[in-house]
Amino acid sequence: MIIVQQVSKSYRQSRFFKKRQSVVKAVDNVSLKIKEGSTFTLLGQSGSGKSTLGKILLGIEKPDNGEVLFDGMNVHNATGKKRKKLQQSMQVVFQDCHSAVNPKMKIKDIIAEPMLVNEKLVPMQIEERVGELLEMVGLSRDDMVKYPHQFSGGQLQRITIARAISTRPRLIILDESVNSLDVLVQISILKLLKRLQQELKLTYFFITHDLHAARLFSNEIAIMQKGRIVEHLLVGELEQAKHEATKALLNSRLTIDCIHNYLEHNEEQVV
C-alpha cells in the first residue's frame, strides 16, 4: 500500500557564532514497503531518525531525495482534492497524549475536529459519530462533555486514537504511542489497537524503541540506526538477527529472566 523509495532527509545544524554548518543526515536512503492490513514496526534508539521518517510518510516533512507513494500517489506532490483524500486516509497518534490535545476544548470538539475539516455535519450527527467513536475505544458516551484534564494518560491516549480513526483512515502512524504509559495500560492500548485493526482493516506504522511492544504487536520489523535501515525482518526471525544494532537492542532488554541467573549465582555461593 505504501512504498517508500530511496528517501533521504538531512537537516542543517548551525551553531551560534560559527560560520560552518554541519549537516545531519536524519534519514539516509531508506526504502520500504508496507502491506495493507499489516503492522510495520520501525525500531531504533532515540535520535535514529524514526520520527523523521514518520513525518515524511505523513507528508509533513519533504524529503530531499526519493518519494513516498500511497496507492501509487506521490504523497508530497499531491494537490487539491487528492491531497485532502490523502490526509483523510493517513492519521497519527503521538507519544505525549497530554500535549496532543487542546486543554481548553471538550472531548467532543477534540474528536470531531478532523471530521469537520473534511465533512459538513450538523450537531446531531457529530454527537452521534463522536459517541460511536468513544464506545469503539472503550470509553463512554458521557465522556463527550468532559475536558482533557479529567482523564488519565491511558484514557487520553484512547481519545487521541478515537480522533485518529474519526476520518476513517487506512493508515495510522503510531509514533511511540504507548511508551510513556504504565506497563499494563500499554498492554490494554495495544489490545485496543489490534482490535481496531481487525474491525476497521487498518494498517499501522509503529515507531518505537521498545522491543517487547514491537514483538507483541507487529508483523514486520525494520531496525533503524543513524538514519539507515540496517535490518529488516519478520517478527519470528528476531532471534536470528545478524546486524550489530539489532543484537545490541536484543541484549539491552531488561528482562526479569535475570532473576534466574541471580538464583544460580547465589546457589553457587552457597556451595
Binding site: V183, I187, L190, K191, R215
Partner: peptide, 26 residues
C-alpha cells in the same frame, strides 16, 4: 518467581517474553 497477589501476577506476566498479546491480561 512466585507472585501471589493477582496484580503482581499480571505485572510479571506482562514482562514474559514468550506470551502473545492475546494471552496477556490488562
Amino acid at each position: 518467581l512466585h507472585p501471589i497477589h493477582p496484580y503482581t501476577k499480571t505485572l510479571v506476566a506482562a514482562r514474559d517474553e514468550h506470551s502473545t498479546l492475546d494471552e496477556l491480561n490488562d
